[in-house]
C-alpha cells in the first residue's frame, strides 16, 4: 500500500527544518532562562506591589497569542527600521515569551524554600549571596527543574509558529514537501514523529525526576 515519492533528500530537508526548530528553541530558552532567573529573583525578593510593573509586563506575554506577538514584533522592527531578520526577531520574541513563564517557575521555586531554612543559613553567618547560591538555588532547582523541562519542550512546540514569518523550521519544511509531493498524511506523520521523538523522551525524564524528588521529600 505504501508508495511514496519522498526521497532521502527530502528527509534531509526535514532534518534541516528540525535543526532550525532546535536552534530557535536553544536561543529562546537560553535567553529566556537568563532573563527568567533575573526577573524571578527580583520578584521573589521585593514586595509584590513593587514588582507590579514587571509582573504586569510579563503577564502580557502569557495572555496574548504568541502568533500575534510574533506578527507585532516583526511589524514593529520593520516600522522602526531595525532591519533584523525574522529569525532574530523570532528568537527575541520567543525568549521574552519564555522568560515570562520562567520567571514564575523561578519565583515559585524560591518561595518553596522554607523561610526557616534561610534564617538558619543566615544565622550561621552566611551572606545573602552565599545563602542564595549555597542554600536557596540547590533546593529551588529540584522544584524548578521538572517545570523548566516542561517549559523548554513547550517552547520547542510553540516555535512552530515562526513559520508565519517565513522561517523554514520543521513544520514549514513539511508544508513545502506536502505542496510538492501531495502526500499530506504521510509527511505530517513523519513530521509529528520527529517532534515526538524530540519531546517525549525528555518529557518522560522530567516526569521521572519529579516523581523521584517528590518521594525523597
Amino acid at each position: 500500500m505504501f508508495e511514496t515519492d519522498l526521497s532521502l533528500n527530502d528527509l534531509m530537508f526535514l532534518a534541516k527544518g528540525a535543526g532550525v526548530t532546535l536552534a530557535i528553541t536553544f536561543f529562546a530558552v537560553t535567553g529566556g532562562t537568563l532573563m527568567g532567573l533575573l526577573f524571578g529573583v527580583i520578584r521573589a525578593q521585593i514586595k509584590p506591589w513593587m514588582a507590579l510593573p514587571l509582573t504586569f509586563v510579563l503577564d502580557i506575554f502569557r495572555s496574548v497569542p504568541l502568533l500575534i506577538q510574533l506578527i507585532l514584533a516583526n511589524a514593529f522592527q520593520a516600522i522602526a527600521g531595525f532591519g533584523i531578520s525574522p529569525f532574530v526577531t523570532s528568537c527575541i520574541v520567543l525568549a521574552l515569551y519564555t522568560s515570562a513563564y520562567c520567571t514564575e517557575i523561578v519565583r515559585g521555586a524560591i518561595e518553596a524554600v522554607p523561610m526557616v531554612t534561610r534564617r538558619a543559613a543566615r544565622s550561621l553567618g552566611l551572606t545573602w549571596g552565599q545563602d542564595m547560591t549555597q542554600i536557596v538555588f540547590p533546593m529551588a532547582l529540584r522544584v524548578a527543574l521538572p517545570s523548566w523541562i516542561g517549559l523548554t519542550l513547550g517552547v520547542m512546540k510553540d516555535s512552530a509558529l515562526v513559520l508565519w514569518l517565513g522561517i523554514f523550521e520543521l513544520l514549514k519544511s513539511s508544508q513545502v514537501l506536502i505542496t510538492r509531493l501531495q502526500e499530506p498524511m504521510f509527511i505530517l506523520l513523519i513530521t509529528g514523529a520527529i517532534y515526538f521523538m524530540l519531546s517525549f523522551p525528555i518529557a518522560r525524564l522530567g516526569g521521572r525526576l519529579e516523581r523521584k524528588w517528590k518521594e525523597n521529600d
Binding site: 512552530a160 513559520l163 513544520l171 504521510f186 505530517l188 517532534y195 519531546s199 517525549f200
Partner: peptide, 19 residues
C-alpha cells in the same frame, strides 16, 4: 502533549486530505 498544537491542527486540515 508532545507535538505542537499547530501540527495537530494541520493534521486535521491537511493530513485527513490523504483520505
Amino acid at each position: 502533549r508532545n507535538t505542537p498544537a499547530l501540527f495537530q491542527i494541520y493534521m486535521a486540515h491537511f493530513g485527513l486530505g490523504s483520505f
